[in-house]
């Protein structure tokens, strides 16, 4: 049985707070947009209906967190520390790729103790918008767009059909809104509002969409 690497992806400790989640990040013409639902559960109980699963690591480097709330908060804090240290000792701004590499290092080295699925996304002044997926187990994948979390399984087909390269900001916001609204519609552990973060050369913009709007979108 122990011949192969085996990671139990479903197990949470008794009473542990889970981000049963729908999250995504999409690169577009001017940068990248991160999106997430806002539901946090303890078993069937909704512990928080307005959670913020989009976490700032450094300037225009953000992440979407899924899995255990405690684990992903701790990992994000450690990555934040590493990037601060990098900035101080090397005298330059860290890149999204660097942040993603540190997420991978931590998630891989501690794979037996963590349940954390993270999307790391950022705006690189040289390369533009970038998204990196660090799923449970600690591998690292650079993609054009990423969907993750329990709700994502319901929208693979929809996203595959509707994603286009180099969309405008408005097209991308609407793509994320309709995708996440369907994920929330079919996934019992996703819900609440849809939060987004837009990262472009012009700066950081926060968006929020309420159920009465996105359910009819």
């Amino acid at each position: 049985m122990m011949d192969s690497i085996n990671v139990d992806i479903t197990h949470l400790k008794k009473g542990e707070v889970s981000l049963g989640t729908s999250i995504m990040a999409v690169t577009f013409k001017d940068g990248v947009i991160l999106g997430a639902d806002s539901r946090t559960t303890t078993g069937t109980y909704i512990a928080n209906r307005v959670t913020d699963k989009l976490t700032q690591i450094q300037g225009k480097i953000w992440c979407c967190r899924s899995g255990s709330a405690a684990d992903t908060q701790a990992v994000a804090d450690i990555v934040k520390y590493h990037l601060d240290l990098y900035k101080a000792t090397n005298g330059k701004e860290p890149t999204p790729h660097l942040a993603a590499s540190i997420f991978q290092e931590i998630c891989y080295n501690n794979k037996d103790n963590l349940s954390a699925g993270i999307i790391c996304a950022g705006y690189d002044e040289k390369k533009g918008g970038e998204v990196y997926n660090i799923p449970i187990g600690g591998s690292l994948h650079k993609q054009d767009y990423i969907i993750a979390g329990s709700g994502s399984v319901f929208i693979y087909g929809y996203c595959k059909k509707n994603y286009k390269k180099d969309m405008t900001k408005d097209e991308t916001v609407s793509f994320i809104k309709t995708s996440l609204s369907q994920a929330i519609r079919w996934d019992g552990s996703s819900g609440g509002v849809i939060r987004m973060i837009v990262l472009t050369k012009d700066g950081i913009e926060r968006l929020i969409f309420y159920p009465e709007e996105y359910e009819n979108a």
Partner: peptide
């Protein structure tokens, strides 16, 4: 091995 990129000269020389 940590940052997956070559070390910058400023960081190296300070170490």
């Amino acid at each position: 091995s940590l940052y997956k990129e070559p070390m910058g000269l400023e960081g190296l020389i300070s170490r």
